[in-house]
């Protein structure tokens, strides 16, 4: 950035991120929100159906069971886990935790967050899975 620092950099081409694996993974991570948006819209539709009555609610469950919707939501599940994997490693970098003068190892913070995912899943199992 020596003498050109006062000038603007040339605009990037649209495919700049295809040239390196690191940038491809970055774009993949950015793209995890696409199936998330799909799931969120499904969930919103379900909430509206629940408000409308028992028949719409059963209709919504049938809609959620149609192969393409199920497939996209499985993709959303995978995307949420990929997002989690990339997000959890950021935490110790953004906010290192020190306890009694010793900094907590990164792996402990990452493992703690995965434990959070498991606890939430167990909570759901307790709430919905006992029969």
């Amino acid at each position: 950035m020596d003498k050109s620092s006062s000038q603007r950099l040339p605009p990037l081409k649209r495919n700049w991120w295809l040239k390196h694996r690191f940038f491809k993974l970055y774009m993949l991570r950015e793209a995890t929100v696409l199936p998330l948006v799909f799931f969120t819209l499904c969930l919103l539709a379900g909430m509206v159906a629940l408000l409308q009555g028992a028949e719409s609610w059963q209709g919504w469950i049938a809609f959620m069971g149609s192969p393409i919707v199920l497939l996209l939501n499985l993709l959303a599940l995978a995307a949420s886990l990929y997002h989690a994997a990339t997000f959890f490693v950021l935490f110790p970098r953004v906010m290192p935790i020190r306890i009694a003068g010793h900094s907590l190892p990164d792996q402990v913070i990452v493992a703690g967050q995965w434990a959070g995912v498991v606890v939430v899943a167990l909570l759901f199992f307790w709430l919905l899975g006992r029969g």
């Binding site: 998330l36 059963q58 469950i61 069971g65 959303a76 949420s80 989690a84 959070g116």
Partner: peptide, 28 residues
């Protein structure tokens, strides 16, 4: 998204429509 959504998607968008949850758990 990272902590809550995996479980939410698993239970509401996968197990529920596949009929893998006990029937009355998410009745109307």
């Amino acid at each position: 998204f990272a902590i809550l959504l995996p479980a939410v998607i698993l239970f509401i968008a996968v197990l529920l429509p596949l009929g893998l949850l006990p029937a009355e758990e998410l009745s109307y």
